[in-house]
Simulated scan of single mutants.
Amino acid sequence: MAQKGQHVVPSGGKWAVRRSGASRATVVVRTQEEAIQRARDIAKNQGTELFVHGRDGRIRDRSSFGKDPVLSKG
């Protein structure tokens, strides 16, 4: 998990929200949808990225809640 932000990852049949670089989950919930909502709230509050991983662990979706440096130029 190299990218900065919140990651929704599978965790023993459940879903975890984990901050980039953290060894422990912020929260573990039963459904991916609940984990996405919790992670989205955190990412919006912190102005960071949200990465949603599939059951295979690969990133399948990404949302940005920070300032886009490309858009802020100019």
Results as ranks from 00 to 15, higher is better:
residue 1 M to N: 10
residue 2 A to L: 11
residue 4 K to V: 13
residue 4 K to A: 12
residue 5 G to H: 01
residue 5 G to V: 04
residue 5 G to K: 01
residue 5 G to C: 04
residue 6 Q to M: 15
residue 6 Q to T: 03
residue 7 H to F: 10
residue 7 H to G: 06
residue 11 S to H: 14
residue 12 G to C: 04
residue 12 G to M: 04
residue 13 G to P: 08
residue 13 G to N: 08
residue 13 G to A: 06
residue 14 K to L: 04
residue 14 K to T: 01
residue 14 K to W: 01
residue 15 W to E: 02
residue 15 W to A: 07
residue 16 A to S: 13
residue 16 A to F: 08
residue 16 A to L: 10
residue 20 S to C: 07
residue 22 A to T: 02
residue 23 S to L: 14
residue 24 R to A: 15
residue 24 R to E: 14
residue 25 A to F: 10
residue 25 A to Q: 06
residue 27 V to T: 07
residue 27 V to Q: 05
residue 27 V to M: 02
residue 28 V to C: 03
residue 30 R to G: 08
residue 30 R to I: 00
residue 32 Q to M: 05
residue 33 E to A: 15
residue 33 E to I: 04
residue 34 E to Q: 13
residue 34 E to D: 15
residue 34 E to S: 11
residue 35 A to M: 07
residue 36 I to Y: 01
residue 36 I to Q: 05
residue 37 Q to A: 12
residue 38 R to A: 04
residue 39 A to Y: 05
residue 40 R to D: 13
residue 41 D to I: 00
residue 41 D to L: 02
residue 41 D to M: 02
residue 42 I to C: 02
residue 44 K to G: 01
residue 44 K to I: 01
residue 44 K to C: 01
residue 45 N to H: 05
residue 48 T to D: 06
residue 49 E to D: 13
residue 49 E to C: 08
residue 50 L to M: 09
residue 50 L to A: 10
residue 51 F to S: 07
residue 51 F to R: 02
residue 52 V to G: 09
residue 54 G to P: 03
residue 54 G to C: 07
residue 56 D to T: 02
residue 58 R to S: 14
residue 59 I to E: 15
residue 62 R to N: 03
residue 62 R to Y: 05
residue 63 S to F: 09
residue 63 S to N: 12
residue 67 K to W: 07
residue 67 K to R: 12
residue 68 D to F: 00
residue 68 D to N: 14
residue 69 P to I: 14
residue 70 V to C: 11
residue 71 L to A: 15
